[in-house]
Design a protein around this nucleic acid. Sequence first.
RNA 1: GGGGAUGUAGCUCAGUUGGUUAGAGCGCCGCCCUGUCAAGGCGGAGGUCGCGAGUUCGAGUCUCGUCAUUCCCGCCA
Length: 599
Amino acid sequence: MNDRHEVLGQPRKNAYRDTWATGAIEQPIGKEIQVSGWAHRRRDHGGLVFIDLRDRSGIIQIVFHPDVAAAAHEAAGTLRAEDVISVKGKLIKRDEAVVNLAIPTGHLELQASEIEILARSETPPFQVDEDGHVDEALRLKHRYLDLRRGTITPNLKLRHRVTQTIRRVLDEHDFLEVETPNLTRPTPEGARDYLVPSRVKPGGWYALPQSPQLYKQLLMVGGLERYFQIARCFRDEDLRADRQPEFTQLDLEMSFVEEEDVIAITEAVLKEVLADAGIFVETPFQRMCYDEAMGRFGKDAPDLRYGLEIQNLDEVFAASEFKVFNSVLTGGGTVRAINAGKRELSRADLDELTEFVKGHGAGGLVWAFVEEDGGWRSPIAKFLSAEEIAAATAAMGAEVGDVILAVADAKKNTAAGALGALRERLARQFDLIPFGEHRLVWIVKFPMLEFDDDAQAWTPLHHPFTAPDGDLNDPANLGSRAYDIVMDGWEIGGGSIRINTVEVQEKILDIIGIDRAEAEERFGFLLEALKYGAPPHGGLAIGLDRLVTLLAGAESIRDVIAFPKSATGADPLTGAPAGVDEQQIRDLHIVSTAPRTDD
RNA sequence: GGGGAUGUAGCUCAGUUGGUUAGAGCGCCGCCCUGUCAAGGCGGAGGUCGCGAGUUCGAGUCUCGUCAUUCCCGCCA
């Protein structure tokens, strides 16, 4: 971490310091200064002791001479890693021969006259002075030590700059930052709620908000016109590398607006936020329809930084005698494929890819190598005519040596989704993602509804407050006024124009099978608000954790959160979730069926 | 709910077809050392091989279970 360096304002002189460690650069040679921080490293020569002192700004070398300050030299000999010290001394220029070019203060050192040891440290469970790999569970258990190492802290600094920029830009556009409650009404829709039992009202429960969605709509009914919040949201679902049970959204909403207004303000914010991370983009961002994204990339959050696009081979194989393709196509299904290019894939590799697509719902994977004579080396080659092979090769734009990977499925989205996942895997496996390049794209023209086979019902693709676009009596073809913003294959945000009349809102609830009584029970307060003159309004939410993860180039969302949860939702530092006293449970009028958890 | 991977010294890891006393680097402790900056030299301590069963003459190694961490599927309007 020697090369990390932060320029900070001059600290107020007090009992501990008058200068930051790297602030010494700004001070004249010979000046008496005082610094405080941690003993980062020690180099004890017996007669001469060097201590690298570290504070947030960076590192400065302290030298203890026995003949300059005998007491300080003796004390310095007892220092160990991570002891907290305050040192007074004279700033001196190093001889040319001993300049350290690796740190900004390398041409200086502080010749100690006095040292005070403010706190001793036990030997840390892992080395704070090195950036080598340490098991994440251990880092999270001692996150305060991990933060000293300087792998996470730069991300937190970036996150700070991002939120400051968000507040500045939105303030310049007349947005009001308003806080909404964290103890809210359960609205069993979407994700599983975190529930909080009420002590005062026996049998009553709060839910932690999955998002401030309904509150922000009420703020629009309340005439605030332009609102934003950097809001904590909670969803009790299983975790992933890019999902935490509590996470942060930039939530915003505007009145009397159309899609273009929300998109424009979002682009203005993102352009400046990205610039904070040294990423410079042009506005307006690219747009792509949902159908095109699904067709070409098999995903509604496509990564546009590389090719490997999905092709449709329905027409090529329309009259095929090959049973698998024939039955899928006559049943209304689809055959789609990726030209993976010239890849050396062994039989074992192909088996692994087959298992991979099966894991994403596909029945199997057809592979074919294009050979010199134009034929295919493929398990299915013998079932296909020469014309079909030639046509498919042409449709794929394939050349000799290319590998074609195809999936046939009765459901278009299954085939597309499996190939979309395969596409991302191949891109990583063959290192096709250009370093340092970023692609932002708006996905628009979403369907309003999708049919849930399990529930045998229409469910909203976004949420039931999204304004529909089209004929309300034709759910299968009903569009929505929703839009997602996608960066490098990650959905970093999404939003919509909302429904602002009770008639349309009730109609949508009807279609998705929520009857009047149930709607009244769940969303009655919103429906009532819509009766009193709700302005046309819309907005969007950006996943701040994901956005900062991308900007920081971090591996995991956990690397941009000071105190993240583990993949099982536990906090390794505090031990949460933990058991509680019987009395606390009784006070809340609840009964636990689980064995007591002590830690 | 399902599948994969990992678990050996404080940390990061190695440990062959099951075979005597489980190793390395860093860290830690002691001594030496006045220009190092990953300081150096010499010496030393440190292990419930995640936990529990089983197979075997013998298990870090094989089997089963379990726990923890992690990645993925389902889930996440």
